[in-house]
Computed example of a mutant assay.
Amino acid sequence: MDGILQVILALLAAIGLLALGWALFGQMLLPGDWSGPVYAVVPAAGEGEHLEQDVKSLLWLRGHKRKQFTIIIADGGLDPTGKAVAAALLSGATGMVVCPVDRLSQYITEK
């Protein structure tokens, strides 16, 4: 019985150390404070391959609510399938826009 208790305590300690390491690693990856607007630009063309994965990765980063940034999908020639993917991503999230590539600098300087 004593051996089982030691194994359980060792597992709990290992899980606790892993959680602590994960939290500290996450803090190291977070950028410092910023005062101006910040944009994450995701280039997209064609059918929008990898668009959903890229945007969802950025939404995961933004999910901690510590740092807010606008996600811009830079439309570099999306076809109807790619535009449908972009529209589906826009419908479920805030702080995201689709902008044609040739208007990207204008959009950023206006905001």
Score class of each variant (00 low, 15 high):
Leu9Tyr: 15
Gly3Lys: 15
Gly77Ala: 02
Met1Glu: 06
Arg103Ser: 14
Leu11Ile: 15
Trp34Gln: 11
Lys56Arg: 09
Gly46Ile: 05
Thr109Ile: 14
Asp2Val: 12
Ile73Pro: 00
Trp60His: 09
Ile15Gln: 08
Thr94Gly: 14
Ile4Lys: 13
Gly46Glu: 02
Leu24Gln: 12
Gly77Ser: 02
Gly32Gln: 08
Leu30Trp: 10
Cys99Arg: 04
Lys111Met: 13
Lys111Ile: 10
Leu78Thr: 01
Glu49Gln: 11
Leu59Asp: 00
Asp102Met: 10
Met1Trp: 05
Val97Trp: 06
Glu110Cys: 08
Tyr107Asp: 11
Cys99Gly: 05
Gly21Ala: 12
Leu18Arg: 08
Asp33Lys: 13
Asp54Arg: 05
Val55His: 00
Gly3Glu: 13
Thr70Ser: 01
Leu51Ile: 01
Leu58Ala: 02
Val38Trp: 07
Leu30Tyr: 08
Ala13Leu: 15
Gly21Ile: 08
Val7Tyr: 14
Leu59Gly: 00
Leu11Met: 14
Glu52Gly: 06
Leu20His: 08
Ala88Lys: 14
Glu52Ala: 07
Pro43Asp: 02
Ile72Met: 01
Cys99Thr: 10
Thr109Asp: 09
Val7Asn: 14
Ile72Phe: 03
Pro100Trp: 06
Gln68Cys: 08
Ile71Glu: 00
Phe25Ile: 10
Leu59Val: 02
Phe25Pro: 03
Val38Glu: 05
Gly3Ile: 14
Tyr107Pro: 08
Gln68Arg: 12
Ile73His: 00
Arg62Cys: 02
Gly82Tyr: 01
Leu18Tyr: 12
Gly63Gln: 04
Phe25Asp: 10
Gly26Leu: 12
Ala93Glu: 07
Gln27Lys: 14
Thr81Arg: 09
Tyr39Val: 04
Gly36Met: 09
Val38Ala: 11
Glu49Trp: 03
Trp22Leu: 12
Gly16Thr: 06
Met96Cys: 05
Gln106Ala: 13
Leu59Trp: 00
Met28Glu: 10
Leu5Met: 13
Glu47Ile: 08
Ala19His: 07
Asp102Phe: 11
Leu78Val: 03
Gly21Asn: 11
Leu17Trp: 10
Thr70Asn: 00
Cys99Asn: 07
Leu58Gln: 02
Gly92Phe: 04
Ile71Phe: 00
Gln53Ser: 08
Val42Leu: 01
Leu30Arg: 15
Gln27Ser: 12
Ala13Cys: 12
Phe69Gln: 01
Gly95His: 03
Val85Gly: 03
